[in-house]
């Protein structure tokens, strides 16, 4: 599996750290119900197939969003979090 850093291009998997489901970008409001925080922290769709997740490129220190398939390990698209939340 190789990933494409939006800044550095396609790089070896060893340069990246997985940071979990991209749901982390949709942080609840500070005063949201406890249930919203519970879902944000713990509950996962955990799809067997296409997924969106956060990765961190260690050499350049930037985060990115990857659209990837958990069943095949194919990486479809990567983008900066700014692009992903536009």
């Amino acid at each position: 599996m190789r990933l494409t850093c939006p800044h550095c291009g396609e790089r070896d998997l060893r340069e990246f750290a997985y940071k979990g489901d991209a749901l982390a970008l949709s942080r609840p409001e500070a005063n949201a119900e406890l249930q919203a925080w519970h879902e944000y922290l713990h509950i996962r769709d955990n799809p067997a197939g296409p997924t969106r997740e956060l990765w961190y490129h260690t050499p350049c220190g930037s985060w990115m969003v990857a659209e990837r398939d958990t069943a095949t390990h194919a990486v479809h698209r990567t983008m900066t979090p700014a692009e992903a939340t536009k």
Binding site: I43, R44, D45
Partner: peptide, 17 residues
């Protein structure tokens, strides 16, 4: 495969595979 099975019962789990 717990996530897929629980989804059949309308549940979402605190599990990542």
């Amino acid at each position: 495969r717990s996530g897929q099975v629980a989804a059949m019962a309308g549940m979402r789990l605190p599990i990542e595979s």
